[in-house]
C-alpha cells in the first residue's frame, strides 16, 4: 500500500471525545482502522466527512477529527449522497450498523448501491440492536432468543453482500474488527475505488452477543482473488458462510457524477416566461 506522507498519524484523526461503547466492543477497532486508513490515504481531516445514522456504531463521526454528520435512524446513505453530489471533492465515508443499514435504512441501501455515488459505506455488523439493548436485527440468526423474540424470530437472515452485488455496488468486501490492520487496508482500498464501495465489518457485541467472541476463530482470508465478474462474485457470495474476509468484488461501473458546470445565467431562464 503506497502511503502518501502528509505527516499525519492515525492519532490525528481521533477526537478527544470518549466513546459510549462497552469495553471490548468491536467498534473501537473499527474506529482505529478508519483513522489508520485515513492516514494511509494521506488525507487531511477537513477533507473527509463521516456520515452516520443511529445506533452504537453510528456514534463514530464525533470520535474522529473529520467533519461529521450524525443524522436520523436509517438515513445516513441519503445524507451522504446529498453531501457527496453537492461537494464531490470531499471524501465521504458512511458508517453504521446492521439495524440502521439493513432494516430501517434498507431501501436506501438498495438505491445507494444502484446509484453508485462515490461513497464508502462501512457497516459494523453485530447481528443485534445493541443501543436498545438486545433485539434481533436483519442479520440475526433465526434461532437467537431474546426478550422481544423469545425462541428466535424464525426469520432467515438478510445477506447484505449478495444484496449489494445484485443492487449494483461497485466494490464489496468483508472485514473483521479483530484485525484492525486488515480492516484499515480494506477501508483505504474501498475509498480509492470509484463508485459505491461497501465494506461489511464483523464487529462483535460482547454485551448482548457474547457468543460472537468465537468469531475470531471462524474468520479466514477469502481463498480467492477479487473478481470484476459479477457472475463469479454472485456464485462466491451465494455460497459464502459469512466468515470469508477480503475484497470479494471490484466492479468497473462508472460512478454517478452529474455535470456541474454552469452554462447559463439565472436571468436567461426567465426568458421562457417573459411576454
Amino acid at each position: 500500500m503506497n502511503a502518501p506522507d502528509t505527516g499525519l498519524a492515525p492519532q490525528s484523526f481521533k477526537s478527544d471525545i470518549k466513546p459510549v461503547w462497552c469495553p471490548g466492543c468491536g467498534d473501537f477497532s473499527v474506529l482505529a482502522a478508519i483513522t489508520r486508513a485515513l492516514a494511509m490515504l494521506g488525507l487531511r481531516p477537513e477533507e473527509v466527512a463521516i456520515v452516520s445514522g443511529i445506533g452504537c456504531s453510528s456514534r463514530i463521526p464525533a470520535y474522529t477529527t473529520c467533519y461529521g454528520f450524525h443524522g436520523v435512524h436509517g438515513r445516513a446513505l441519503p445524507a451522504a449522497t446529498g453531501l457527496k453530489i453537492a461537494r464531490p471533492e470531499l471524501t465521504v465515508i458512511v458508517a453504521g450498523g446492521d439495524g440502521d443499514g439493513y432494516s430501517i435504512g434498507g431501501n436506501h441501501f438498495l438505491h445507494a448501491c444502484r446509484r453508485n455515488v462515490d461513497l464508502t459505506y462501512l457497516v459494523m455488523d453485530n447481528h443485534v440492536y445493541g443501543m436498545t439493548k438486545g433485539q434481533p436485527s436483519p442479520t440475526t440468526e433465526p434461532g437467537w432468543s431474546s426478550k422481544l423474540a423469545p425462541g428466535g424470530t424464525g426469520v432467515r437472515e438478510f445477506h447484505p453482500l449478495v444484496v449489494a452485488l445484485a443492487s449494483g455496488a461497485n466494490f464489496i468486501a468483508r472485514g473483521f474488527s479483530g484485525d484492525p490492520n486488515g480492516c484499515a487496508r480494506l477501508i483505504a482500498e474501498a475509498v480509492r475505488h470509484p463508485g459505491f464501495s461497501f465494506v461489511e465489518i464483523l464487529s462483535p457485541c460482547v454485551t448482548f452477543r457474547p457468543d460472537q467472541r468465537a468469531w475470531k476463530d471462524l474468520v479466514r482470508p477469502a481463498p480467492v482473488e477479487p473478481t470484476d465478474d459479477p457472475a463469479r462474485a454472485a456464485r462466491r457470495l451465494m455460497t459464502d458462510d459469512g466468515f470469508n474476509l477480503g475484497i470479494l468484488y471490484k466492479g468497473r461501473r462508472a460512478p454517478y457524477a452529474p455535470a456541474r458546470e454552469p452554462r447559463t445565467a439565472l436571468a436567461e431562464l426567465a426568458k421562457e416566461f417573459a411576454l
Binding site: F69, A79, G82, L83, A86, R87
Partner: peptide, 9 residues
C-alpha cells in the same frame, strides 16, 4: 435527508 446532506456541505 439528501438535501440536509447537501446543505450541510
Amino acid at each position: 435527508n439528501m438535501i440536509l446532506g447537501a446543505s450541510y456541505g
